[in-house]
């Protein structure tokens, strides 16, 4: 499986085979790398391309312009992208904070305490994260219309909690399980008070886990489309909905370049975040699936 095998007899044939295996690894890696990044690259190239050259197939930056970004934020065309960004930030931010507030306690109990029905509780939480969004949208649409919440922020935050909270609990539980909690006791033995032990030992240990979970929760909420497309109005529309129904300069003409620019604006912060915290995010994503 591992391509770099332990050095066998220095036969040329073996070495050639090894070099061939190595080469294949690099070729495969290059294919994966390109496949994952090319569409993203194409989005950025198009975002910076003059609208007249929308379908130019030159593979590098040509006819570079900022116009598309101006279009994206242009109020005259009926785009309120700045507002949409703030809406998304607000909805995702509140969802993340609420989910963490509730999730941290639950995850602590699930990872540290012994109690009956633990299996059941975890099953319920996992089941909740797999829950289809449409099954919530229908009743909530009517409910929120009846109580006058349609198009409000809480109408977007509440259903988002339904899938972000389970994700938070699930990820935090597996993180907490891996933490060296004995250190807390050692600190107490060494003379720390309960509060000091918590502040100086547990908090620094738990902070990265909580932070990573916060990123995952935020991304999940930021990327949400179905619920927002049904329960938001012009004032509370989030970025994903705005991008899906974007208005260009010409009616009946898909504003490809502007949409790509909007996509770039929405995606670049996420991509930067993901690249910086790559290791932690991978750990968070895969936490619980193995072990």
């Amino acid at each position: 499986m591992t391509a770099v095998s332990i050095d066998t007899a220095p036969k040329t044939a073996a070495r050639r085979r090894e070099r061939w295996a190595n080469g294949r690894t690099y070729i495969s890696a290059a294919i994966i790398f390109i496949w994952c990044l090319i569409p993203f690259y194409w989005m950025i190239v198009t975002a910076f391309r003059d609208v007249g050259y929308t379908f130019d197939s030159t593979p590098f930056f040509t006819h570079v312009t900022w116009d598309n970004f101006t279009t994206v934020f242009s109020e005259n065309l009926g785009n309120h992208f700045g507002r949409n960004l703030l809406n998304s930030l607000l909805v995702s931010g509140v969802t993340t904070v609420v989910a963490l507030l509730f999730g941290v306690f639950a995850a602590y109990a699930l990872s540290r305490l012994e109690f009956r029905f633990k299996f059941l509780v975890l099953g319920f939480i996992l089941g909740a994260s797999m829950f289809p969004g449409v099954a919530l949208v229908t009743p909530l649409f009517q409910l929120f219309t009846n109580i006058g919440w349609y198009g409000t922020y809480q109408a977007l935050i509440i259903p988002n909690i339904s899938f972000v909270l389970p994700l938070t609990v699930y990820t935090l539980t597996s993180f907490f399980r891996e933490m060296p909690w004995e250190l807390e006791e050692s600190a107490r033995i060494d003379g720390c008070t309960q509060g000091q032990a918590f502040r100086k030992v547990i908090m620094p240990l738990a902070a990265p886990a909580v932070f990573t979970t916060a990123i995952l929760a935020f991304i999940a909420s930021w990327n949400e489309f179905l619920i927002a497309s049904q329960l938001s109005n012009d004032q509370t529309k989030t970025v994903t909905v705005a991008i899906a129904y974007f208005a260009g300069a010409q009616a009946h003409q898909e504003p490809y370049t502007a949409v790509m620019a909007a996509g770039t604006v929405v995606t670049i912060p996420l991509v930067i975040l993901v690249l910086i915290f790559q290791r932690k995010i991978v750990a968070g994503l895969t936490a619980g699936a193995v072990k």
């Binding site: 994952c36 994903t240 993901v274």
Partner: peptide, 28 residues
């Protein structure tokens, strides 16, 4: 899973499609 130079770059690249919102993916 193999060890080669640029492995962490590959793992980072792989995360890019995952991080892009599905709505943007659809438009792209």
């Amino acid at each position: 899973a193999r060890t080669f130079r640029g492995r962490s770059a590959l793992r980072a690249a792989v995360l890019v499609p995952w991080a892009i919102p599905t709505a943007v993916t659809a438009k792209l």
